[in-house]
Amino acid sequence: MGNKNFADKLFFSVTKVAAFISFALIVLLFIMLIKESGLSFSKFGLRFFITKVWDPVVEQYGALSFIYGSVISSLLALLISVPISLGIALFLSEFASKKLKEFLSIIMSLLAGIPSVIYGLWGIFVLAPILRNYIEPFLQKIFGFLIFFQGEPYGLDMLAAGIILSIMITPTISSISKDVFESVPRNLREAGLALGATKWEMIKIAVLKTAKQGVIGAIILGLGRAIGETMAVTMVIGNVHEISLSLFHPSATLASVIANEFAEATTDLYVSALFKIGLTLFFVTVILNIFAKVLIYSTTKKYKV
């Protein structure tokens, strides 16, 4: 930047120091997670991830039931959220007037702004009773022959966690999908309509097909958020360390077990096992995020001039 005097150089050294602090904090985060989970690594190794016994009394720790809980609750959330989010995104990009768009974007930011703990509160006192008394018995009556809908309806269970998560990730998936849809060039749509396609056929051929990668990216980003989500899930999932195929069975996730047990973890190995779960969460969410961003970026940039 040309010749700078001493004060200029000082100022830019200060910004460099700030940047280095940001950098150091992130590296430190990674280092501390590895260091603190060291004990558990030396004791259980990678077996940790495929055993399901989690028993502080005998100092045996395996994360399989939490991995299962995280995966199933998140997939359930995607199952519910993806069709609705894509519907909203298509509504915004293909149908809504400018005013309506503005209105829905405010609705979305309000929904996204609700703190996780409030979703949890609502889940415990509003959603769970409805599930327990109406929805779960109803599902059992119709689909009771399926293993997913067997057992006593608790209300605070895998299904509740899935539903809460689905609400929480909808703003993410729909807003990013909307951006991706809007990056599809107008002439592709017009070409579709000119061929005599109905509006839905045009959407299917021109919009969805072109935007496929980006939409998958949006979904993966939603998945990452669902897996990392802690409070709401902790409050409604029931926190039982068991693997059950029934959605009416309480469960636990990687994030919820940390929230529930970290404060009472008394032995070094117990704490270390929980840090190892934290490290797992870190890796899984980071990989999902990077993957998602690459996909989203590659679609939205493709059609930019």
Partner: peptide, 20 residues
């Protein structure tokens, strides 16, 4: 790295602050 950090679950940040 900042991009990575923005995707890290807040509970993980919590135990990091605990350890540090």
């Amino acid at each position: 790295l900042l991009d990575v950090l923005s995707g890290v679950p807040s509970i993980v940040i919590g135990i990091f602050a605990y350890s540090l």
